[in-house]
Design a binder for these strands. Structure first.
Lengths: 236, 236
DNA sequence: TGATCTTTTGTACGATAGTACAAATCACAT
DNA sequence: ATGTGATTTGTACTATCGTACAAAAGATCA
């Protein structure tokens, strides 16, 4: 890949800017936004703190650029995979394909950004937990369309389930997805070393399998109303 | 509840200490640990910043005390509910009761701490996402036993599923649980107002229903091996 | 080579962080 | 009423934060 100089617009040394972005992504995703200082990021990237200000103006601007960098490619890939999944004939297979189309891009690389998928998804999880304002705005703008597309697709392959239930279950899916990326070591620990929580392929298969079953659960209203809510009380 | 003065050990004005704890809990749970300053907490509690230092020594000490305050009651309640759930005869009902025993205390009050369950669980979710060291240590010490107890109980009512799969699925359960408490508004938004993500009863029912189905999914190894992983590729 | 623009560096500034500590205040036993 | 220990207040210290900005360095083209 030989990037020609183009005299204008582009940088002479794009490495530094990329290094800062990568370092910030990694640090934000593991420690949260406020726990990481601009100086931490600069040091991790082998840059001067002033460089961060030069390229991204503010710390928020840096976070914003990270989102801009990833949102497009990830949503594009999800759209492609979703389109392919919707062409699957068998309803059961189609549901699984749809879920996979949602999960896979979150775990794997979104484009040419090395290993960016999982790292960016983890970043989103942490920003979401921290209630980060910058992230919240972008998320609502960028991901809600995609989420609705997936919810609609799932609804089509499970017409007997109310849309509300599907929303809840896809919400659970995202939560499980996030959490798997946030604390993969917990899986290894609780399984006493038998499972590797850090293995993306493993996580994907487990998540898809469990989620498909969750989506196929009977709807809440019609769920065996004769025997519910016994043996465990709701309030003390 | 008339707390006698006991001359020694206890405080004359326990209100301030409690107010600080409550304010810290709320602020940490919504904004993360580092985004909240001791001064923020003091102000929200109507106290002086010095009072925080007096009662809890450091900011970490304050977080530690929050955990100490909740972990015991919540785990106790979970143990009680789990014991009751294990006495359920019907295997399907028992599984649901076990899941409910895990979920309910996380959403509702753990003891006499008003509305503490959901708030504390949300706090745990945020600390977990931020990789908070203080929280990580307590969690591993305090909750792993409980987690193992639940995993074992679930395994007993689903003997044909490998323990590894159960670990994964209970991990997903916790992730979904956390996420439901972190961004309940997302459910309301995606369901276009048809569902209320902030209603604990609603969330519990949806989560229990979906999770029970997820646990009952076929084991990964024997999951219809003739038709898997088509229509969607794993790598680009 | 020298002019010009981009990038990097070094440093500094005001704000705010966590925490320490002495003084003031409070509650209660005597 | 007064002394005593627990609590609260007020303030100050040092460290670090995000960011600004001028100077240095590097690159490009006449």
């Amino acid at each position: 890949m030989v990037r020609k100089p183009t005299s204008k617009e582009s940088a002479r040394k794009p490495n530094m800017r990329e290094a800062i972005l990568a370092a910030a992504e990694e640090l934000f995703a593991t420690n949260g936004f406020n726990a990481v200082s601009v100086r931490d990021i600069a040091q991790a990237a082998g840059a001067n703190p002033g460089s961060v200000t030069y390229h991204f103006k503010t710390k928020d601007g840096l976070l914003l650029e990270i989102y801009r960098r990833h949102c497009g490619p990830m949503n594009l890939r999800r759209s492609e995979l979703l389109a392919a999944a919707k062409r699957v004939r068998d309803l059961q297979d189609r549901l699984e394909a749809i879920v996979r189309a949602y999960v896979v891009p979150a775990f794997t690389s979104g484009s040419d950004l090395a290993g960016g998928g999982a790292r960016f998804t983890r970043l989103r999880a942490v920003m979401s937990a921290e209630g980060n304002e910058v992230a919240r705005k972008i998320i609502a703008q960028t991901f809600d369309d995609t989420s609705h597309a997936f919810i609609d697709a799932i609804h089509e392959s499970l017409p007997h389930i109310p849309r509300t239930d599907i929303v809840w279950r896809s919400h659970f899916l995202l939560g499980a997805l996030y959490y798997s990326l946030v604390t993969p070591d917990r899986v290894s620990r609780l399984s006493r070393g038998e499972a590797d929580g850090s293995d993306p392929a493993n996580a994907i298969e487990q998540l898809v399998q469990a989620t498909v079953a969750a989506f196929q659960a009977p709807a809440l209203d019609q769920a065996a109303p004769t025997r519910r809510r016994q043996a465990v009380s709701n309030k003390t």
